[in-house]
Design a protein around this nucleic acid. Structure first.
Lengths: 99, 99
DNA sequence: CTATATACTCTGAAAAACAGAGTTACCTTA
DNA sequence: TAAGGTAACTCTGTTTTTCAGAGTATATAG
């Protein structure tokens, strides 16, 4: 029998207001910078930083540092595990919410 | 133009692993008890209690106390504002995730 | 009567979220 | 060319949230 009345657990790394938006943004956009994300989400630097750190530490997001003439800039994108986790997360939501 | 690159904010009362599951469960079931919820979600008493308290305090969930011969039992259900908020939350997710 | 179970509530610890100040380096513009 | 502004982060500390487990009241089984 299918466990229809036990809603599946949701990945806490992705199921959080700021991080879900980051993941969705990245899934749609592919690659982004700190500044672009900050503008899109309208949150403080510190807040964005701590969420990005967590996502990078977990391996869901990859940073590509581009060394140029100035300060190296970071480009963020979903890693393959991140993409997979995001897909699973969305599927879990769909099931749970009957979408 | 539509603000397509600024993912909408998600109601923090609903966008939390345990509470999303509570809301989804209630939306599907209509009314439930503490024990049933505890069994369905597999979380500790204290944890469930604190989330229920928050949901009740916010007005998203209504408690109906049934006085019987013994200890009065509580039946929980989504209030009308709760149902509305949940609908809006689901809609926001759909938009954000492109569902 | 004792043990067990349900239905909660309370308390406190641990973790998460967040803001703002600080750092480095470029890029104006006066 | 020096001062001011800004982008891109990082660091630190406070507040808020999450969570587990112990505690309380009542009922029921043996």
């Amino acid at each position: 029998m299918t466990n229809q009345h036990t809603p599946a657990k949701l990945d806490p790394l992705l199921h959080q207001p700021v991080r879900t938006r980051i993941a969705a943004f990245l899934a749609a956009r592919g690659e982004t910078t700190f500044g672009e994300l900050k503008k899109a989400l309208e949150i403080s630097d510190g807040n964005l930083d701590s969420h990005m750190k967590k996502l990078v530490a977990s391996g869901y997001i990859i940073v590509r540092k581009v060394e140029g003439k100035g300060r190296p800039q970071s480009f963020y994108s979903l890693s393959e595990p991140g993409r997979t986790a995001f897909r699973a997360y969305v599927a879990a939501l769909q099931t749970m919410l009957g979408l």
